[in-house]
Simulated assay, not measured.
Amino acid sequence: MQQIPLDPSAVTGTDTGSGVIEIRPDVAYRSLTLVNVAFIGPVGAVDRDWLLVDAGLSGSEPEIVAAAAHRFGAASRPAAIILTHAHFDHVGAVLDLSERWDVPVFAHPLEHPYLDGSARYPAPDPKVGGGLMSLLSPIYERGPIDLGDRLRALPEDGSLPKTKASLFHAAASGAWRWLHTPGHSVGHVSLWREADRTLLAADAVITTAQESAYAVAMSRTELHGPPMYFTHDWAAARGSVERLAALQPDIMLSGHGKAVAGPAMRQALHDLSHDFDSIAYPADAHYLLHPARAEDGSAYVAPD
């Protein structure tokens, strides 16, 4: 397993308490054991005036609610929950949170089968990555969950659901866009704000070796491709990294690991894009040799 080490100076963010790390005045995240959730909205945003990005592991509802209360106030609820994809570590608390806050949940339409109760993800590949997290992957939940009528498709124009705060900050910082970045999952998305070059990459690239329990526990910061055991389309994953590297972000938060920023991060992202096959492709990966199939037998592929 190869990686691109990142200088500690690339790690960015200010600890504001309760485990909430602020990386922009209106962007913060909370790390929950294995995965990050992000909050889009300024400190003190009023009720229905901010967005939650992803929903962590099952059982993480109290921590997410506490982090949201710390940043926005105990009575403040999001306007919506945005899911970058539907893997178990990103949707664990989404049913509880969407019911608690009475909010819609937005995801790419290609992820909807895993969110409306109709399909499971293909099986993971436990042999890749050489770490305990990979070896344990056969026991990870593959869904589906059923969000019922709370489930919504992300807007076709690439925008995010609007809030008063997002409209206000768009005037100064620019609007958020979602980008289709498949490979790790068929409907995976990343979030991008051009004006200040802020990237929420989700699992298209990550800043820790997610296959290794030791690396996760030590929070060692290094740039990797997507978590190997759940990545089913490596050609699409390479294309997604190339797309993100071309953005030249100033600051990047991934779904796993710490937020990073600056020239060292951009160079690492460029190097990963340029040498993706040698750095990120796992040796003897099942899904490099055998196209993934969904549980119903239909092809698990990205659209043209």
Score class of each variant (00 low, 15 high):
T231G: 04
V105Y: 08
P62L: 04
Q267D: 03
A245L: 06
G131K: 00
G131M: 04
F230P: 01
M228A: 05
H224A: 07
G59T: 01
R266N: 12
R238H: 15
E99R: 15
A55R: 03
Y114L: 06
A236W: 09
P263L: 04
E156R: 13
A215D: 15
D54I: 06
H87R: 07
E63C: 04
Y29C: 06
Y300V: 08
V128Y: 02
V46D: 07
D47A: 11
G92L: 05
P263R: 05
P113C: 09
H256S: 03
A28S: 15
A285I: 09
Y29D: 03
E242G: 14
K258M: 02
A119I: 11
A235H: 05
A294R: 15
P25I: 14
L110K: 02
S190I: 14
A175Q: 03
A170P: 03
T231C: 10
P124M: 09
W50E: 03
M252G: 03
V94C: 15
R120C: 13
F106G: 01
S76M: 10
A292K: 08
N36Y: 05
Q2D: 12
A75C: 10
R238K: 15
D116S: 14
M1P: 14
A202R: 05
R177K: 12
A55W: 06
I81G: 07
A299H: 11
V260L: 02
K164M: 03
W50F: 14
S9M: 09
A236G: 02
A66P: 03
A123F: 13
I206S: 08
A80C: 10
A66K: 09
A66N: 04
D47I: 11
A79T: 10
I21R: 02
V65N: 08
A217W: 08
A268H: 00
A66H: 08
A302I: 06
Q267V: 00
R48Y: 01
A68V: 00
S31A: 02
V103H: 06
H184D: 09
L272T: 07
I40N: 01
A246P: 10
Y121D: 06
A213T: 08
H70F: 09
A38D: 00
D277Q: 04
A123M: 14
S190D: 13
L32R: 07
H188S: 14
D47Q: 11
A268Y: 06
H112E: 09
A80Y: 04
K164S: 00
V43P: 04
H232L: 01
T208K: 05
R71M: 13
I81W: 08
P226N: 03
V11I: 15
L95E: 15
W50P: 06
A165E: 00
T181R: 08
T221H: 08
F106P: 00
I139N: 00
A283T: 15
V11H: 01
P104Y: 08
S31M: 07
D47W: 10
D49K: 00
P122S: 14
V20C: 00
D296P: 02
I206K: 06
H90P: 00
E22F: 03
H108E: 12
L135V: 13
L199M: 13
S185K: 05
L269I: 00
L151E: 09
